[in-house]
């Protein structure tokens, strides 16, 4: 076991949690991420390999899916992000690469991102001040990319109208968190 201590995207030793009346914003630093891009002409093989070895059916455009210990969301044509608990799957990229072999390109993305889980009765009122997604018309399983505070973020609908994950660039975690807090304060 190595001797280096990890810090969260917000710079703390443990994730930050912010409570509002009808809203909870939780920094989630326990995610391991790896991107999979299917090689040209090998798209079906790539999906099949992920399904058979990881037990995960790769999702359709603008969707996320779950399978066993893994979750994945669609990032672009033939491109997905696979997600798992960091505690148990720190070497996710290595394992995913092992699964897809030469039919997919895999890159470790774990620390490229920060994630905030936003939940509560006021969540839609807050998101309509943050991004242009029509979340009121959405459903659980949606995975969109949106610009929040000028930052390209993924917004995953975990429970429609109740719980969403915002995944944004890690270096701007502070700016994204500030936007979430000031918007929550503005709305609630």
């Amino acid at each position: 076991m190595h001797s280096l201590k990890a810090i969260t995207p917000l710079g703390g030793t443990c994730p930050q949690i912010d409570h509002f009346d009808g809203l909870l914003i939780s920094e989630n630093s326990d995610r391991a991420l790896a991107s999979i891009a299917a090689r040209q002409g090998r798209e079906a093989e790539c999906s099949a390999a992920v399904q058979s070895i990881l037990g995960l059916k790769l999702p359709q455009p603008a969707k996320w899916s779950i399978g066993g210990a893994y979750m994945a969301w669609w990032m672009g044509p033939d491109l997905w992000m696979v997600d798992a608990d960091h505690t148990d799957h720190e070497l996710l990229a290595v394992n995913v690469k092992r699964a897809v072999g030469s039919v997919g390109s895999v890159a470790e993305q774990t620390d490229g991102w920060c994630r905030f889980d936003v939940s509560g009765a006021r969540v839609l009122d807050v998101f309509e001040r943050l991004c242009n997604l029509n979340l009121r018309a959405g459903e659980a399983g949606d995975a969109h990319r949106a610009s929040i505070e000028h930052l390209g973020c993924f917004v995953l609908c975990l429970e429609a109208g109740a719980k969403y994950a915002v995944i944004g660039p890690r270096s701007s975690a502070g700016a994204l968190h500030h936007a979430l807090l000031t918007t929550a304060q503005s709305v609630i």
Partner: peptide, 14 residues
């Protein structure tokens, strides 16, 4: 038709 995939990893590595 080039079989090449690109993705940014700027922030993933210190």
């Amino acid at each position: 038709d080039l079989d090449v995939q690109v993705i940014s990893t700027t922030e993933a590595w210190a």
